[in-house]
Computed example of a mutant assay.
Amino acid sequence: MSPSPFELDTLIHLIASHPQLRAKTLTEVESDGKLYPVICAELGSEQANIPCIVFIGGVHGVERIGTQVQLALLSSLLTRLAWDSQLQALLNRVRVCFIPILNPVGLAKGTRCNGNGVDLMRNAPIKAVDGVTFLVGGQTISAKLPWYRGKAGMERETAALVSYMRDAINNSSSVIALDAHSGFGLSDHVWFPFAHQQTPMADLGRVYHLKQLFESSFPHHNHYRFSPQSLIYRTHGDIWDYLVTDTAKGDVPFIPLTLEMGSWAWVKKNPRQLFNFAGLFNPQKPHRYHRTLRKHTVFMHFLMDLAASRSIERLNPQQMTQFDRLARQLWYEQ
């Protein structure tokens, strides 16, 4: 029987210790005779039609650092709530949601896939329009090979996230999502849809505005490379592509972002990590681990502040046209 990962125990402890956290189980998945919950914890306003930000982690179980970064932020917010009047005021104007362990079985077993061998980020019912990289873009050959898409529809974890995000979009004035991953490149990336095609998403101008605000407001924290994921590689079954396509005709601004932490930099500084599968995706040295927990806090706080400000909601048609044009010049006219 697989033991509970310590990250899941940490989340359950935070919920038990802080009654202001509104927690619910989105689904449960079974493995080796044990049930693992997929838990969402919410802070802030419960009113409808307010901005919402959702932090997601643990889609790939081996990428533990994404879950740990988000649990560190959640723990900090809960501690500060006891005395920080500015944070208290912020949470009156925004709803902040955490789903830090979408794939608890993968986290417990140290695998990228879930308990059925399915890669959850290749599992949504959307197929690439343009060509994808062999295997990496998602395959239906065998669960014994990586990047398996599955053949029986959405997995319980995927369906639970899709359902939760649809409800968030239907009951909020805007939604920003940040999905934390690790394992690609020497740099930290912030990707956004699409991954299944090279055409721009409808809210491209809003993404450009977000990027512009962050880089001008925090010039000394600008270590992220923003781009549509299709410029890096294309895939089938991307959850965020599916949700953006599913909600394209709605009037609620929806900006899903993927934080891809550049784990190759950790391997470069400590080549012995090559001999440890988890070391390909997570910092192994304590000082690099703690630095990573600190490194992304500014960006996550920025997203909370941006959501609460409603800046992405209040763009007029002229501004949207201008930002869309600049975004296309930057990302699509190369």
Rank of each mutant, 00 (worst) to 15 (best):
N49P: 00
M1N: 09
M201R: 06
H13N: 11
T199Q: 11
A307S: 14
N49T: 04
P200D: 07
S182H: 04
Q334G: 13
F55P: 01
W83R: 12
H290S: 15
Q86C: 02
V244T: 14
G58N: 05
H301F: 06
G117L: 05
R93H: 15
L81N: 10
M300A: 06
L35W: 10
Q229L: 13
H221Y: 12
P37F: 08
A308W: 07
W240V: 01
C113A: 14
G58F: 04
S182C: 08
N270P: 01
I65S: 09
V136I: 14
A82L: 12
T111F: 09
A195K: 06
I255S: 04
K211W: 06
R328C: 14
G66L: 03
H290N: 10
D324N: 15
A307T: 02
E42S: 11
A177N: 06
I39Y: 03
S217T: 14
A143E: 11
P256G: 06
I50G: 00
F323V: 00
R272K: 13
R122M: 09
H296Y: 05
K144W: 07
G279C: 06
P146E: 09
L81D: 07
V94C: 08
Y208R: 14
L213M: 12
K285A: 11
S31L: 09
R288S: 13
I239F: 02
A248G: 00
D119C: 07
Q334K: 12
A307K: 04
V252A: 02
G106Y: 01
V54K: 10
A48C: 00
S174C: 11
V136H: 11
K269T: 12
T133P: 01
N276R: 13
M154C: 11
L87V: 08
K109V: 01
G279P: 07
K109G: 07
F6E: 12
T158H: 03
P5G: 11
Q68R: 15
G57D: 07
L293A: 15
R80A: 12
